[in-house]
Amino acid sequence: MTSTVNPQRTRYLAGLSLFVFILLWHGIASWLATPVLPEPIKVAEVLWSEIYHGDLLHHLGMTLFRLTTSFIIAMILGSALGILLGRTPTIDHFFDNWLIIFLNIPALVTIILCYVWFGLSEVAAILAVVVNKLPNVIVTLREGAKSLDKDLLEMAQSYRLTRKKILTQVIWPQLHPYFMAAARSGIALTWKIVLVVELLGRSDGMGFQLHLFFQLFDVASILAYTIAFITVIQIIEISLLKPLDRYGRRWQR
C-alpha cells in the first residue's frame, strides 16, 4: 500500500494542494461576484494594509499574549494536578466527578460566569480560558501518571535515588508524550476559546476585531485576520512543538 514517502514529493504535493485551494476559492468568488466572498487577491491586499497601516499586529499580539499566558498556566497547573491524581487513587476517586463536571461545562458558560463574577477584566478573561483548558490537561496527564512503569520506579527506589532525580529522570520522560499530546491539542482548543473570550468582554484582540467586522459585514477583513492567525499558530507548531516532540523521542528506535 503506502510505499516510503519521498519528502520532496510530499512538499510538492502540499504546495500543489494549497495552490488548488486558492484557485478554487478564486473561481467561486469571481463566479458569484458578491461582497460576502471576496477574492483571494482582495483578502491579500486587506491583510497587507492591516499589517502595515492598521492595528492587526496589536490585536494579534494581545490574543497571543492571552493565549500563551493561559496556556502556560493551564499546562503547569494541569500537569501537577494530573500527576497528583494519577499517583494517589484516593484523591483521584474523590475528584473524578468534579473533573467530569468541569469537562462538560460549555466553554461559553465558564466565560460568562467569569465575567459576571470577576468583572470584564484581563484576569477574568485569562481565568476563563484556563478553566476551560485545565480539566483536559489533568485527564491526559493523569492517564500518563497511572501507566508509569513500576519496574523502573522499583529500580529507582532500590538505588535510593533522590526525589528530584526520580521526578526528572524516571517519571517525567514517561509523561512527556502525554504532555505533548495535551499541549498540541491544547493550543488548538485554547486559541478558539480566547477568541470567544475577547468577543464577549474585551476591547482588543482578534475576537474583538472579528466581532467588529461581523457588524460591518466586512468579510475581507475577517478572512485576512484568520489567515494571519493560522499562519502564526502554524509557526508555533512547526518551530516549537514539533522539535520539542522530536527531542522527547530521540531515544526511541
Partner: peptide, 16 residues
C-alpha cells in the same frame, strides 16, 4: 547500607 540490585530484566531507563 548501599544495595545494588540486578533485576531479572535489565530495567535501564530507555531515554538515557
Amino acid at each position: 547500607c548501599r544495595i545494588g540490585y540486578v533485576f531479572q530484566n535489565p530495567r535501564l531507563l530507555p531515554w538515557r
